Computed example of a mutant assay.
Amino acid sequence: MQASDIAVEVPTVTLDDPVTRAVKIMADRQLPGLIVVDRASHPRAVLPGSQVLRMIVAQTYQRDPALARTIDEAHADLFWQELEHRTVSDCLPPQPSKKVAVQADATLLEVAGVMARMHSPLVAVVAPDGRLSGCITLSALLIHLDLPDTTG
């Protein structure tokens, strides 16, 4: 099985899009992240939802969950409003590491290897011209692996 066999179309974002748009798309489509593309639809990076959270949740609360517990519920539910004026670019490292993409003819092992190496919950699938042709999420990859039945 090849990457193109299980890739699906997903919405994308650009570096200039508001991060609130990205979060809304992830929530609406139940995606673990999004592919960031340039104007020519070439994948540039993956924006994992966890990276967005790392950016908006103060380091003190990340390091000490007990401290986060001291914030009352009404105020704790509003932490996401810190995203209001930020862009997708703000959520990514200044120099994104290697692209999280595979060619359409990549095997599932190649896809799994990229996901594992890059700690990415999704991988872009690119056509020979480098344009995005689809995306594979970790859950889709796991569904298509020939795993043994352990139910009984």
Score class of each variant (00 low, 15 high):
Met1Leu: 08
Gln2Ala: 05
Asp5Arg: 04
Ile6Gly: 02
Val10Pro: 01
Val10Ala: 11
Val10Phe: 13
Asp16Phe: 07
Ala22Gln: 03
Ala27Trp: 14
Arg29Ile: 02
Arg29Met: 12
Gln30Asp: 09
Gln30Trp: 05
Gly33Trp: 07
Leu34Lys: 01
Val37Gln: 02
Asp38Lys: 01
Arg39Trp: 06
Ala40Val: 00
Ala40Pro: 02
His42Asp: 00
His42Ala: 00
Arg44Trp: 07
Ala45Thr: 08
Val46Leu: 04
Leu47Trp: 09
Gly49Phe: 10
Gly49Met: 11
Val57Trp: 06
Val57Ile: 15
Ala58Arg: 15
Leu67Trp: 13
His75Ser: 15
Asp77Gln: 15
Phe79Tyr: 15
Trp80Pro: 04
Gln81Asp: 12
Gln81Asn: 11
Glu82Pro: 01
Leu83Phe: 05
Thr87Val: 13
Ser89Met: 12
Asp90Tyr: 14
Pro93Leu: 02
Pro93Tyr: 12
Pro94Leu: 11
Gln95Thr: 15
Ala106Glu: 08
Thr107Asp: 07
Leu109Ser: 11
Glu110Phe: 00
Glu110Met: 04
Val111Leu: 00
Met115Gly: 04
Met115Gln: 04
Arg117Phe: 11
Met118Ser: 10
Ser120Thr: 14
Val126His: 01
Val126Leu: 06
Val126Pro: 11
Asp129Met: 01
Arg131Cys: 02
Arg131Gly: 03
Arg131Asp: 04
Leu132Pro: 09
Gly134Met: 04
Cys135Arg: 03
Cys135Ile: 10
Cys135Tyr: 03
Thr137Met: 10
Leu141Asn: 07
Leu141Cys: 05
His144Arg: 09
Leu147Thr: 09
Asp149Thr: 05
Thr150Ile: 14
Thr150Met: 13
